[in-house]
Design a protein around this nucleic acid. Structure first.
Lengths: 341, 341
DNA sequence: ATCGTGTTCGGGAACGATTGCACAAAAATA
DNA sequence: TATTTTTGTGCAATCGTTCCCGAACACGAT
């Protein structure tokens, strides 16, 4: 604000009052006469006075703004979740600051620290695929920064969490593939230490087990960078194709991996598409337009964002320190041929 | 920052110095003895001191942060542009704050004003499809807020601008369709008062003219909300299908409209796809997976973001008031069958 | 006449950092 | 030895706002 130099002082000077009186008049302080209040508010209105949020932040040590950290906004799941968060924050009078970690731990730390030093009142974060050590977050949380984890969470931090039912989503997708007659189902997933990776892997295994299909280690491909670089996916695909017994279906655990895998197959072995069935987690709005059709496990991203923001604001505005935390689990949807299955 | 209470005062007290000395020692002031400097910096390091950006913003009336306003982050073009902006800002020591207008004028104004009051050092903005009146931006610009417009610009504001060569992009796409043998080419576009709409429409018209094809008013469909609601697109599609002489190709001027149109046709008249050719502006990373294949006009979004941020930072850091402004025009690419045409 | 008791307002200290100016002590010069 | 210069440090104002205290005044009760 190098401009908008209308301050409370200007009002005070113009009206022959003190800054304290003006401040109280504007805040509706009970100790100010109706008349003064009227004069002040009318004048403030006239000269278009806006309180300086920076000065307020310095004084109040809060900012009415909330920090969001995701790995990529160019990811349908996250952009939808952010929209959900915004919608709740907006009505509650908070602003949001969106940052991206690009799946890198150092960027994540930098973002979080910058947000914290900027006095965000709270933090919504989905961990990067590199984030194995979350002690920096833990410290901040201990110092009193309200945090709500969503999507990629960690048991290291005791706070509210919002996740999709990853186990069930993975189970349903795998189960669907099996019921279509597939028996050799591969699994593409991301970094092994992400919460979602484990949960989805378990769902996949459980579905196999329930149908008496043996689990094959070779069929599981971890792409540590979560689809950030296509090369990783290409390599995994090649490995799969090099197997004696090629898989006849693939279940993919991540949005970017799903499209990445389609690209890879299309590029490396387009004929392989015939007969193979692919199901994967994705919140893309255009899955129904995909040529090798894909069965989508869709997360309620918008609702997850809303829930996370609601929990965070509750945490921020709670008078008492909150000690009971909840993990909200939202159900996924299996989308087959553009309709709910 | 309700925690991280390590301030310059704490250091001063602990070391028996004044705050001014500590400040100067940390800043590397030439007037401080080497010994004191060392003591101070070492102690600051030890207790992990971080200067409070809020206090700095208040004092310096700048924040080393840059505001970005786009209509939707869930749009490939914008998320890619944002990545370009971030990359430049990051190396120059600036942070970015991303906000969304959701194609609404009131949200845009709210975002801009919030950013300005938060002392952003500059603003990068692509106008919403509702933004006909930009006087609020003009005022801010006059007051000294550095602004760079990108993508959807306006001639109302005299400043740096970064756009794609929309005319040529549209011309190339239309020309491509014509050369494939199509003569009845419809045009889907968004709000009429957006700069990009006009430029792309002109490119479309010019290509028709150059090939001696008459311009048909009925073939042009304006979707004012830019693809935010699918209904609008469905209606436009129906109108097109109801024509006596149905178009045999469509050129689409917007990312969301392109996919929206594919959805519409797929839903309303799937058989219509046979023989019809679609070309459209889109920065989707998955166009090659689309079933009704689409010829894409791809904007160099990342580079546009970089250019815009470079120009803005230049504006911010310029000692002299800048009076000469440039409009940087970047070339689009026609992507046919997943490769540059 | 004195003492509460409101009511309405102003003074001034915070919040964290920078910085012009003043001032001391030490060093250099006359 | 006296004076000037250099060097290192502190004081206090500033940014815009809030809020604790206290001041001034009026009014009714004692």
């Amino acid at each position: 604000m190098r401009f908008n130099t209308v301050t409370i002082k200007d009002i005070a000077k113009a009206l022959g009052l003190s800054t304290s009186t003006v401040s109280r008049a504007l805040r509706g302080g009970y100790e100010i006469s109706e008349e003064t209040k009227k004069t002040v508010t009318e004048y403030a209105e006239k000269i278009n006075y806006r309180p300086n949020p920076i000065a307020l932040s310095l004084k109040e040590r809060r900012s009415y703004s909330i920090g969001i950290v995701v790995c990529e906004i160019a990811n349908n799941f996250f952009s939808q979740a952010i929209n959900g968060m915004e919608s709740v924050a907006y009505t509650a009078g908070y602003n949001v600051t969106i940052t991206q970690s690009h799946e890198r731990f150092d960027r994540e730390v930098l973002n979080v620290e910058h947000l914290a030093s900027r006095s965000v009142d709270g933090l919504l974060i989905s961990l990067s695929s590199e984030s194995a050590d979350v002690s920096y977050l833990k410290d901040l949380h201990k110092k009193g920064l309200p945090i709500v984890l969503f999507d990629r969470v960690t048991s290291e931090i005791d706070t509210h969490k919002v996740i999709a039912d990853n186990f069930k989503g993975a189970y349903d997708a795998t189960d669907y593939l099996i019921k279509l007659g597939h028996k050799r189902i591969a699994h593409f997933t991301s970094s092994a230490h992400l919460s979602v990776t484990g949960e989805r892997l378990e769902g996949y295994k459980a579905a196999l087990r329930d149908h008496g299909i043996p689990f094959n280690e070779d069929f599981v491909k971890f792409c540590g960078h979560g689809g950030i670089n296509q090369e990783e996916i290409d390599d995994a695909t090649k490995e799969l194709l090099a197997l004696n017994e090629r898989p006849d279906a693939i279940f993919i655990a991540q949005d970017k991996l799903s499209t990445g895998c389609l690209h890879a197959i299309k590029k490396i072995a387009p004929d392989y598409f015939t007969g193979i069935k692919i199901a994967g987690f994705t919140n893309s709005n255009v899955v129904d337009l995909f040529n090798p059709p894909i069965t989508a496990v869709r997360q309620p991203a918008f609702e997850m964002g809303q829930a996370a923001m609601e929990l965070l604001i509750h945490l921020i505005e709670s008078k008492m320190p909150v000690t009971e935390f909840e993990t909200r689990i939202l159900q996924t949807q299996l989308i087959v041929n553009n309709s709910k299955y």
